[in-house]
Computed example of a mutant assay.
Amino acid sequence: MKVIIALSTLFLAIHAQQPNEPIPIVKYDNEGVNADGSYQWSYETGNGIVAQEQGQLKNAGSENEAAEVQGSAQWTAPDGTPISFNYIANEDGFQPQGEHLPTPPPIPPAIQRALEWIAAHPEPDQPAASNVQPVYRSAPQQRRY
Rank of each mutant, 00 (worst) to 15 (best):
Q18R: 00
Q18T: 02
P19M: 08
P19Y: 01
N20Q: 12
E21V: 04
E21H: 06
P22M: 11
P22D: 14
P22S: 14
I23G: 05
P24A: 14
I25H: 06
V26S: 13
V26F: 11
K27P: 04
D29V: 12
V33I: 14
N34S: 09
A35C: 04
A35W: 03
G37E: 09
G37Q: 04
G37N: 11
S38A: 10
S38Y: 03
S38F: 03
Y39W: 13
Y39S: 08
W41D: 06
E44F: 05
N47C: 09
G48R: 08
G48Y: 07
I49W: 04
V50K: 05
V50A: 08
A51I: 01
A51N: 00
Q52H: 11
Q52N: 13
G55R: 03
Q56T: 08
L57N: 02
N59I: 06
N59A: 15
G61W: 06
E63F: 09
N64F: 11
E65T: 12
E65K: 03
E65M: 13
A66T: 15
A66G: 15
A66K: 15
A67E: 08
E68L: 08
E68R: 07
V69Y: 02
V69E: 05
V69M: 12
Q70Y: 11
Q70D: 13
Q70C: 05
G71V: 08
G71S: 13
G71Y: 10
G71K: 06
S72D: 06
Q74L: 00
W75T: 02
T76L: 11
T76Y: 08
D79M: 06
D79R: 04
G80W: 03
T81R: 00
T81C: 03
P82W: 01
I83C: 02
I83R: 00
S84M: 04
F85K: 07
F85A: 10
F85Y: 15
Y87E: 05
I88A: 13
A89K: 06
N90S: 12
N90M: 06
E91C: 01
E91P: 00
D92M: 04
G93A: 07
F94A: 10
F94W: 09
Q95F: 06
Q97A: 15
E99S: 13
L101W: 10
P102Q: 14
P102E: 15
P102W: 12
T103P: 02
T103R: 15
T103D: 12
P106T: 09
I107G: 09
P108T: 03
P109R: 07
A110Y: 00
I111G: 02
Q112L: 15
R113T: 08
L115S: 04
L115D: 10
E116H: 05
E116A: 13
I118D: 06
A120R: 09
A120P: 01
H121D: 03
H121A: 04
H121K: 02
P122Y: 02
E123F: 01
E123P: 01
E123W: 00
Q126D: 09
Q126L: 13
Q126G: 05
Q126C: 02
P127R: 04
P127H: 08
A128C: 00
A129K: 13
N131V: 01
N131A: 14
P134C: 07
P134H: 04
V135W: 02
V135C: 10
Y136P: 01
Y136S: 12
R137D: 12
